[in-house]
Structures are given as structure tokens and as C-alpha cells.
Design a protein around this nucleic acid. Structure first.
Lengths: 218, 218
DNA sequence: CGCTAATCTAGAACAAGTTTCAGACTTGAT
DNA sequence: ATCAAGTCTGAAACTTGTTCTAGATTAGCG
């Protein structure tokens, strides 16, 4: 593999992967077109409707080029998710939940995110299927999505520096969110059920640091 | 679709799907061979190594027949998981954890299951990838896997009739288990991390019913 | 036994993700 | 302006999941 450098090298949307070489304007534009076309196709038929040939055609790019920017369909859809998450994080930041405890704010935030996904269930399906189907070769990108999710939750908690126990609780909340989402998308859980699950998991947050100091060490 | 009845109609291993027509001996044997061959292939290269043509050849069955028994690769691997889970449930039942609180017993049980999966990481990868990639058409089978998991956890708790709040906690534990497993399989979480996550989630179990009776209604 | 319906087999065919390649186009440096 | 290196295009090829078909086999039944 001599000169197989990728333009996007993962995800480099201006503020994501600093380790990647900068893209020319046309390249940036191509990348945008690809992501937009993918999201559009996903918004219709979901994961299966995002067909690489169609994405390529729809974004006026050769198939080979598409693969150079995103080395697989899963990479592509995870990048779409990354993009959407950034958008959502921005939105959530603008109007943060006011609620009572940290747990309530987190639950409220996640349910808001959830309702946003509900509005485009097919797109959500495509992104989440990609995310969970991702194998090791997509780990870095999946990890970025995960970090962004953590950031959203921490923002909702509104704490400057959360205790280690709270970070543990956040991880469980994230697992729950992720898995509940999958169950909902495949029709095995109702929205009400998702809400209950999230609220239950969120209880761990308040449990672990009511005031801000706790005696029982980690 | 005139006479497109399936022999296995989902999963009918003698004690799984009672709604299915009984299989002749040879059919039962074929089904076994298929599951065995799949597990063997999965044990080597994981999900990708389970190739339908190879499974068919390896279990001395025509490709068409394979598809008649399992309508897709995902169905097939979910059935494998079901099979393995039953096995594990039996094993766990034989030597249930003795530990202190319900939460501790559940955590212990799940970590045991986890170590079992560690012994065949590729097989685990194949099964879990299939499980999470499953779309709506596989919901019934996935649901069965989910119910079996719940049963394992409830067994570990050792309670006759758990309170509604405890059932909620169990759901979160299950979500956490599932999602942590995925993170581990894709190399994004260490075993230590998985243990912490599970233990954290398990705390919800003890929280919700210390003695056995609680005043605060659902 | 002999019939009929269902099942199984072998193999071709099809679909969509991925790879490859020759040639045209861009870009950056001189 | 010109050259080299890298990039993009269009099209074909390859891989693997899935479907289809025609004929052989099996199972149940009179």
C-alpha cells in the first residue's frame, strides 16, 4: 500500500479530527455533498437505502472517490452520525434544560435528543445500525461519537468537575441510552419504555454525589 | 407465497418455539449440523468468516435448504446465540453465585458469563454483531434472546417475585451488559472497564428493594 | 407398493458492497 | 509555462448475501 492516503482520513469537518491533512475547498465541498446525499437517502429508506453507487451518483462523485473519502458504508454513516450529533449538541447547548437535579436534567436532555431522532426515524435507524455494526476498523470514529455523547450528558449535568463515581454513572446512562435506542428502532421497546429506562439509569447520577462531596472513597 | 412454510420457523430446538411444527429426525439433525458448523466458523474468523456457502457446504446441506431453515445470516447467528445462551443458562444454574446482596450476585453472574465469552471472542463477536445488526424482521428471535438474558439475571437475584422497580433496574443492567459487551468487542473498552460498568449498573438493583417491601409507590 | 405433496440438491442468477485500473484533471513547485 | 505527484472519473471486476429453478429424494397415506 504505497500512496493510499485519504483526504478525509476519518472525519475532518473543520473541528473534528485535527490529525488529518487539510482539505482543499473543492474537497471540503465534495465531502459535504457526500454527507448530505447520504443523509437524504438515509432519511428515506434507512440503512438499506443508502447504496454506495447511489450516494456516489447523487453527490456527483465517482465511486472510487467516495471510497477514498469514506472507506466503507459504515464509516460513511458513522460520519453522518457524527455530523448530526454535532448539530444536536449545538442546539441543546443553546437551550439547556433548567430542571431540578442533575439526573433530571440529563434525562430531559436525552429525551429531547430522542424526540429529535423520532422526527427522522429512518435516518436514525441508518446511523444507529451503522454504529452498532461497526467493527474494530471503525473504532476511532465510533469513539468520537461516544465522546461527543458523553460531552452532551456532562453538559446537561452542568458540573464543572464531576466525581469519578459520577463518571461511572454517566457511562451506564450512555450504555442505556444506546441500547434502548436500538431496542426502540427495532420495534422491541416503546417510547414510554425508553423513557423509563433512561430515567432509571439517570437515578445513578444523583445517587453518587448529592451535594458535591462524599466520604466513601472510590 | 403459496407453500413457503419453514421447517425451523424461527427456533425450535426442542424447548424454544412451541408454535413451530415438529421436525423429523433428519431435519433436527440438519438443523444441528448447521448450528454447529456456524459456531465453528464463527469461532475462527468471527462474523465475516461465517459465509453462507461455507456453512452450507460444511453442514452438507444445499444453500437453498440453509435459507429455508434460517432466512438470513443474521437469523442464523441469532439462533446460534440462542443456543449458546441456553447452554450458559444451564451452566450458571448448576452453580449459582453465593454472594451477599442481589446486586453482587447479578454482577458476579454477568462477569462469569463474560469470562465465558472471552474464551471464544470471535464467536462472541459474531453473535453480538448479528444481534445488534438485526432489523425488525428478526425481532421475535432477538426478543427471545433478550428474555433469556432477563431470566438469567432474575435467577441470579434469586427473588421469587421482584418489585416493579427492580424490574426496571434489571432492564438497565441488561442494557449496560449489552452495550458494554459491544464496546469490549470492538476494542473500545477493557475488561476492567466492563466490570466497573456492570457493577455500577447493578447498584440500582439493591437500591430499589433493600428489604423486600417499599412504601414509595411506582 | 404407488401416488402426491413437501423437501432437498446443485447450480445459475441477481444485488449491493468493495476493489481495481487506465486515463483525464488538479495542484504545487520550479 | 511545465513537469511530477497526487486526485478524480468511468467502468469493469470481484465477493458474498440472497433468490430462483429444474430435477431428484423423502415422507406420509391409501
Amino acid at each position: 500500500m504505497p500512496a493510499r492516503a485519504k483526504p478525509g482520513a476519518g472525519t475532518a469537518s473543520a473541528a473534528s479530527t485535527p490529525g488529518a491533512p487539510p482539505l482543499t475547498e473543492r474537497q471540503e465541498a465534495r465531502r459535504r455533498r457526500i454527507l448530505r446525499a447520504s443523509a437524504r437517502l438515509a432519511g428515506r429508506g434507512g440503512f438499506d437505502a443508502v447504496q454506495m453507487r447511489e450516494v456516489a451518483e447523487s453527490s456527483r462523485v465517482a465511486l472510487g472517490t467516495l471510497y477514498r473519502y469514506f472507506p466503507s458504508k459504515v464509516h460513511l454513516l458513522v460520519a453522518v452520525m457524527q455530523d448530526q450529533l454535532e448539530h444536536m449538541h449545538g442546539t441543546l447547548r443553546r437551550r439547556p434544560p433548567a430542571g431540578g437535579t442533575a439526573a433530571e436534567r440529563v434525562a430531559e436532555t436525552l429525551m429531547r435528543a430522542f424526540r429529535a431522532l423520532q422526527r427522522e426515524p429512518q435516518l436514525a435507524e441508518a446511523m444507529v445500525r451503522a454504529l452498532t455494526f461497526a467493527d474494530r476498523s471503525v473504532s476511532p470514529e465510533v469513539d468520537q461519537v461516544s465522546r461527543r455523547t458523553t460531552a452532551i450528558i456532562l453538559d446537561a449535568m452542568g458540573l464543572e468537575d464531576p466525581a469519578p463515581e459520577q463518571l461511572r454513572a454517566v457511562r451506564v446512562v450512555e450504555h442505556t441510552w444506546h441500547s434502548a435506542l436500538i431496542a426502540w428502532l427495532s420495534g422491541r421497546a416503546s417510547i414510554a419504555q425508553v423513557r423509563v429506562d433512561i430515567e432509571t439509569a439517570c437515578r445513578l447520577i444523583d445517587l453518587t454525589a448529592p451535594g458535591g462531596e462524599r466520604p466513601a472513597g472510590a
